[in-house]
Design a binder for these strands. Structure first.
Length: 274
DNA sequence: CGTACCGCCTGGGGGC
DNA sequence: TGCCCCCAGGCGGTAC
């Protein structure tokens, strides 16, 4: 489940591998979510140059020539692969871009939740405004005070749910949410209103630290995340809580509990997360 | 308005 | 071996 570190890993690789390459041909093997006009999808892309690749929240942004932009969301299982010209698509490859230098960019998505969408640069600005994404947690401007202000926009909600709200903080998903709460010793059901300033500061510190560490490890491949070369990240080796229900807490040896919160598996220590 | 929760989609794993 | 059911979850849409 790609979150900020996994998306950042993909964006860096895309940017170094395909920036400044021209799109010479486009094949679509499956209808693209949010982009029903398949003909215009293809005709808009062909002939454009990929100027650079960026990230905002968990969205991948391909800046194209002629003031156009393609955005992509990996959702659960979306992947970009960079292949040489002779590699053939498999049953889950939905789009292939043939690029300069005999490179191909594959859009691959088993569960089909992800999307690609093409807009003009004017449209994409509006699209992002409408998303109302919160602050980027890896920027210096994401201070404890900013974090507190963002949290207080949802003062009666549970902290576990609130960290997943992309308008509060951009880029946190279920894995880093669970891990950061354990590191900060905060129970996932705590209501925002009840958090002390020192708890908020501690949580802020752990969110920033874990995201940085995971980016350095090329993300978490506890499920099926792969980078653009089909390589796994390594941060799953450093997870303390996610996927470890019914095993002892490394801090206090109490057996981890698992509950479901808004349909998401939530593992925590019932003893030292208060 | 704030908050909670369904459903999209598929492969993998457990139970029998 | 095979069948069935459940699980994973980001987030848009919707209900309350």
């Amino acid at each position: 489940m790609p979150e900020l570190p996994e998306v950042e890993t993909v964006v860096r690789q895309l940017n170094s591998a395909i920036a400044n390459l021209k799109i010479n041909d486009v094949q679509v093997y499956f209808g693209i979510r949010n982009q029903p006009e398949q003909k215009s999808f293809i005709s808009t892309l062909v002939g454009k140059t990929i100027l650079k690749v960026e990230r905002r929240a968990k969205v991948i942004i391909f800046r194209l020539s002629d003031d156009m932009t393609m955005v992509a969301h990996l959702k659960m299982s979306g992947k970009f692969f960079i292949h040489l010209a002779e590699v053939k698509p498999d049953k889950h490859t939905h789009v292939v871009l043939r690029l300069d230098n005999d490179k191909q960019l594959f859009w691959h998505d088993v569960r089909k939740f992800g999307y690609l969408k093409i807009m003009t640069n004017l449209e994409v600005d509006d699209w992002f405004l409408n998303k109302n994404f919160g602050p980027e947690p890896l920027l210096d401007t994401f201070t404890p005070a900013v974090f507190k202000r963002q949290l207080l926009t949802r003062k009666n909600a549970k902290i576990k749910n609130t960290l997943l709200d992309q308008s509060v903080v951009a880029g946190v998903g279920n894995i880093y949410d669970i891990e950061a709460l354990w590191l900060a010793k905060i129970h996932p059901l705590r209501v925002i209103n009840t958090l002390t300033d020192s708890e908020i500061e501690l949580l802020h510190q752990h969110i920033v630290a874990i995201l940085h560490k995971s980016v350095a490890a090329n993300g978490t491949s506890s499920d099926d995340f792969l980078d653009t070369s089909k390589k796994r990240g390594t941060f799953q080796d450093e997870l303390k809580v996610y996927g470890k229900e019914n095993t002892p807490c490394p801090r206090c040896a109490t057996i981890f509990t698992k509950i479901k919160l808004n349909g998401r598996g939530t593992v925590f220590c019932p003893s030292c997360q208060i």
